[in-house]
């Protein structure tokens, strides 16, 4: 019997550092990526703050894990979505966010940034299409 590939969605709604959710989510995504499932990661509400450029945590004595998001493509996470309304509500633009590159090892195709800005309707549809939603 063919192995069933499930569609996993990791839904992030919390800002980094204030609570442990963002870091826990990132760890679970990276660990889960070893299991060859169809994974997407979505950032809505304060979750969009996880991807801001230029984070520097030296002054608060916490690990800055924002550079790690740039490895998501290497961990075979091909779909990363950010909710446009959440960005705009916070006065942010796509330029404020980290870029996540992706290289397809089979075709050699390289994409500079796989982060996709989407509207709420599309986000809702993507939730419906997932088999499992992990909320953080």
């Amino acid at each position: 019997m063919a192995e069933v590939v499930k569609k996993f969605m990791y839904l992030n709604r919390k800002a980094p550092y204030g609570t442990i959710y963002a870091w826990e989510s990132l760890e679970v995504v990276l660990i889960g990526a070893a299991f060859d499932q169809d994974v997407c990661v979505m950032f809505i509400d304060d979750g969009v703050y996880q991807l801001t450029k230029g984070q520097d945590t030296k002054g608060i004595g916490m690990k800055n894990f924002s550079p790690t998001y740039r490895t998501l493509g290497d961990y075979d996470v091909r779909r990363i979505y950010v909710d446009r309304d959440s960005l705009e509500a916070r006065g942010l633009t796509p330029d404020d966010l980290i870029a996540v590159p992706f290289e397809d090892m089979e075709t050699g195709e390289e994409i500079d940034n796989i982060v996709e800005i989407i509207d709420s309707e599309r986000a809702g549809a993507l939730m419906n299409q997932s088999d499992v939603i992990f909320s953080f």
């Binding site: 070893a34 894990f65 550079p67 490895t71 290497d74 090892m105």
Partner: peptide, 13 residues
Amino acid sequence: EYQIAPAVRVLTK
């Protein structure tokens, strides 16, 4: 650079 110790297949790549 990335603040993470990569999994083996990521390292290989």
